[in-house]
C-alpha cells in the first residue's frame, strides 16, 4: 500500500483542544493541497467536546480520526505511541505533523524509533520539494545560529514536530464538511505501567509563555524581584504574560517555566518585549523568531537592539511606568 495523506496530531487537555491542534491544520492544509492529498487530524484522548471536534474540520481538516476512551484521558506516551503506530500501520500516512509541545516532543520520537522513520524537531518552515515530493523541513539549530533544511528521502511516514505559534489557525469556515471517523481503542494497546498520580496546576496563567501572543520578559536590568511587578502590570495591560532571562531566573526573580532561551523555552509570540535584557546569544536563541521584538535597555550597544524592531535606549524605571500609564489609556 502506498503512503498517502497528511496527518496532524491534535492535542486535548481536560476535554478541550489546545490551540496547537488548529495551528497545525493550517500547516497541513498547505502541504495537502500541494500534494493533492487528504488532510487528517488525528485525535487520541478521553472525551473531547463535540463542537471542538467539528471545528477541526471547519479549520481545515478533511477527516478527523478519533480514538476516544476514558483510558486515554491522560497522555501516557507508552499507550499513545502504540495507538498511533497501530493507526500508521493500518492507514499509511505520508506525513505526520505534531506540535513541538512537551507531549508532541515525547510521542513523536517514541513512535519514530519503532517504525524507523525520519523525524525533524521543532520546525519553523515546511514545504514540498518539487521534483521528489519529499517534505522539506526547516529548523533552527545550534542556538538559532543556523537554519537547517532536512528531508527524509527513503523512510515513510515523514515526521516533524512544529514550533507552537509559528503559524496561525485558518479562519473558521462553517460550511466546510468532512468525515469524523471513530476508531475503537483496542485494549491490547493499553500499557498501564506508568501511573498518572496528580495534575498540579501552574498556579498562575503566566506559566504558559509558549502559548501567549505577547511575552514581556525581564532580565538582570530589573535589579530585584519586586520590580517584576512592573512587568506583570505591562503584560496584563495587553493580555500578555511575563517571561524572563536566565539571569533573572537564576537570581530567583522568576521561575524556571518562565525562562526564555537556550536552556529554557523557545517562544514565537506576536510581540516580545525584552526589558533590561542585554541579548546574550543564548537568550536570542529562545526569542528571535518572534514576529515583533521591542527592547528597552540602558546600554545602547546591547546586542538586543540588533534584533529589535523597536528599541528604547533609556532607564527602564523611567520608561515602564510611563508606558504602562499611557497604554492603560489606549487600551481603555
Amino acid at each position: 500500500m502506498e503512503y498517502k495523506g497528511v496527518w496532524t496530531i491534535a492535542e486535548a487537555h481536560e476535554g478541550d483542544l489546545k490551540a496547537v491542534s488548529f495551528e497545525l491544520l493550517s500547516r497541513g492544509r498547505k502541504l495537502a493541497d500541494e500534494l493533492e492529498e487528504e488532510l487528517v487530524s488525528v485525535l487520541i484522548g478521553g472525551k473531547v467536546k463535540e463542537e471542538r471536534v467539528k471545528e477541526l474540520i471547519q479549520r481545515g481538516a478533511d477527516r478527523v480520526i478519533l480514538v476516544e476512551d476514558p483510558l486515554l484521558d491522560r497522555f501516557i506516551v507508552e499507550t499513545y505511541s502504540k495507538v498511533l503506530i497501530d493507526l500508521i500501520d493500518k492507514k499509511k500516512p505520508e506525513i505526520i505533523l505534531s506540535a513541538a509541545t512537551v507531549n508532541g516532543r515525547t510521542l513523536m520520537p517514541h513512535v519514530a524509533m519503532r517504525i524507523h522513520a525520519g523525524l525533524t524537531a521543532d520546525c519553523t518552515e515546511l514545504g514540498i520539494e518539487e521534483t521528489t515530493r519529499n517534505l522539506l523541513q526547516t529548523r533552527p539549530a545550534i542556538g538559532g545560529n543556523i537554519l537547517a533544511t532536512i528531508k527524509s528521502p527513503d523512510s515513510r511516514p515523514q515526521m516533524a514536530t512544529v514550533r507552537p505559534k509559528s503559524s496561525r489557525p485558518l479562519e473558521l469556515d462553517e460550511s466546510r464538511e468532512g468525515v469524523v471517523e471513530r476508531i475503537e481503542f483496542s485494549r491490547d494497546l493499553y500499557d498501564d505501567r506508568v501511573k498518572h498520580l496528580e495534575t498540579i496546576s501552574g498556579g498562575e496563567e503566566d506559566i504558559n509563555i509558549q502559548e501567549s501572543d505577547i511575552v514581556v520578559s525581564g532580565g538582570k536590568g530589573m535589579k530585584k524581584i519586586d520590580n517584576f511587578k512592573m512587568l506583570s502590570d505591562l503584560a496584563h495591560a495587553m493580555g500578555g504574560v511575563v517571561g524572563a532571562s536566565r539571569d533573572a531566573v537564576d537570581r530567583g526573580w522568576a521561575r524556571y517555566p518562565q525562562q526564555v532561551g537556550l536552556s529554557g523555552k523557545t517562544v514565537t509570540p506576536n510581540v516580545y518585549f525584552a526589558i533590561g535584557i542585554s541579548g546574550a546569544i543564548q537568550h536570542l536563541a529562545g526569542m528571535k523568531t518572534a514576529e515583533t521584538i521591542i527592547a528597552i535597555n540602558t546600554d545602547e550597544d546591547a546586542t538586543i537592539f540588533q534584533v529589535s524592531d523597536f528599541g528604547i535606549v533609556g532607564d527602564l524605571f523611567d520608561v515602564l511606568p510611563l508606558l504602562t500609564q499611557k497604554l492603560a489609556k489606549e487600551v481603555k
Partner: peptide, 22 residues
Amino acid sequence: SPTRVVKIETPKVTRGGKIYKV
C-alpha cells in the same frame, strides 16, 4: 539515518529597527 540535511543557512539576525534614545 532516515534524515538528510539538504541545506544550511545562516539567518540574518539584524532587524534594524527604530531606536529612540532617552
